[in-house]
Simulated assay, not measured.
Amino acid sequence: MIDYSVTGYNIMLEPVCTLDGHQETVWCVAWNPSGTLLASSSSDKTIRIWGQEGDHWVCKSVLMEGHQRTIRSVAWSPCGNYLASASFDATTGIWSRKEGEFECIATLEGHENEVKSVAWAPSGSLLATCSRDKSVWIWEVTEDEEYECASVLSSHTQDVKYVTWHPTKEMLASCSYDDTIKLYKEEIDDWTCCNTLQSHQSTVWKVCFDKTGSRLLSCGDDKTLKIWQEYPPGNPEGVVTVGSDSAWKCVCTLSGYFNRTVYNVDWCHTSGLIATAGGDDAICVFREEECSDKNQPSFSLVTTVAKAHLQDVNCVAWNPKTPGLLASCSDDRHIKLWQITGL
């Protein structure tokens, strides 16, 4: 464990435990809404569910036979009773959790090849998936647990890496190998792309909103983080908007902190801290400076674990309820839990 204690902060990322069990690369970790369970997905075609027993974290369930290839992403429904899984076998699995047991109740088909990411809307009534086939699909969830395709969006020109929903609105963001971020909303009876954000110089690997939804965070192959600010129509700053759509402007670029690609970021909704994962095997944590101007915000690196994993760190996820508890996973097959101290 290495603490750089930069910029006057005395914040440290302390290791809590290492969770072993996956036989190949672990691609994704995701907390359930109550923060009591952690789901992980792997190239070994399994999903593992981890929970705490006393002072120890243990594997509660292993979900098998849902997919034929790598499971790239998992996401919990807002109610915590369903888990969605996106796989390189071109399908998305829906798992129902009842009395602690998981059952695959649906397999969503339609993408031409690898599904890279899956995300639930805050209402729980919509699901989004994205794929190497350059498309984003939006699925409607019916009361009888049926999943129907509501829209196929082909706004990107390359492999779509990630999808995420606005925390309170039914607005979707996606990012792609085409170096762009797209925002979508429903108009009349169909979904349309309402904004294209361009600033990254290479593949955008992930996007996530802050807790208010008025900011967006992105990371990319260009070894940068970018903060995007929303400017609604009639904004006092005078940023030009079109129709009823907000404008989104890149107001901060964090560069020089990473030696390799930044694969993943997570913006903590309880502390405001940003964690990053990348090809340099490190985890970095950033915090916005006090009295920062929202139109020209300043963020500082507060701590780094240089060798957080033995190989690429693929995903980081802040626990939604326990302040400062962070999960990470890696090509090295390990999942690690970390605790921020010194806040």
Rank of each mutant, 00 (worst) to 15 (best):
T107W: 01
E143W: 01
L127V: 11
A119D: 09
A119W: 11
Y147P: 00
W139G: 06
L127F: 15
S131W: 07
E99T: 03
G110A: 06
V115P: 05
Y147W: 12
S117Y: 04
I105L: 10
W95T: 00
L126T: 08
P122M: 13
S151R: 03
S155P: 01
V115F: 08
E101P: 00
A128H: 06
A121N: 05
V118M: 12
E146Y: 01
S125C: 02
S135L: 10
E148T: 11
G110W: 02
A150P: 01
V160H: 09
S96V: 00
E146P: 00
V141M: 12
T129H: 09
Q158Y: 13
S155K: 06
E103K: 13
V115C: 11
E143A: 15
K116M: 13
D133L: 05
F102E: 02
L153M: 11
S154I: 07
S151L: 03
V118I: 04
S135M: 05
S131Y: 10
L108S: 05
N113M: 13
T107L: 03
E109D: 07
A121V: 06
E99R: 07
S117H: 09
E148G: 00
I105W: 07
C149Q: 12
H111R: 04
D144N: 15
R132V: 13
S117G: 02
E140I: 06
Y147I: 09
E112D: 14
D144E: 15
G100I: 08
T142N: 10
E146T: 10
H156F: 02
S155C: 11
V136Y: 06
D159I: 09
R97Q: 10
T142D: 14
E114R: 04
W120Y: 15
T142Q: 08
N113T: 15
F102T: 04
T129R: 03
C130P: 14
L127R: 12
V136K: 07
C130K: 11
S151M: 04
S151V: 01
G124H: 08
V160M: 12
L108P: 00
D133N: 14
E140H: 07
S96M: 08
D144V: 13
F102M: 13
V163D: 11
L108H: 05
S151N: 08
W95C: 00
S117P: 07
G110V: 04
A121H: 05
Q158K: 15
S151E: 09
I138D: 02
Q158C: 15
D133P: 11
S96L: 10
C130S: 08
L153K: 05
E101K: 14
S96C: 04
Y147S: 02
H156A: 05
V118Y: 13
H156S: 03
E143C: 01
E103Q: 12
G110P: 07
S155E: 15
D159W: 10
C130I: 10
G93Q: 06
D159A: 02
A128F: 14
K134R: 15
C149K: 04
A150V: 07
K116L: 10
E143R: 14
V118E: 11
V118L: 10
S96R: 10
E145W: 08
T107G: 03
T164N: 14
Y162T: 07
V141S: 04
V152E: 09
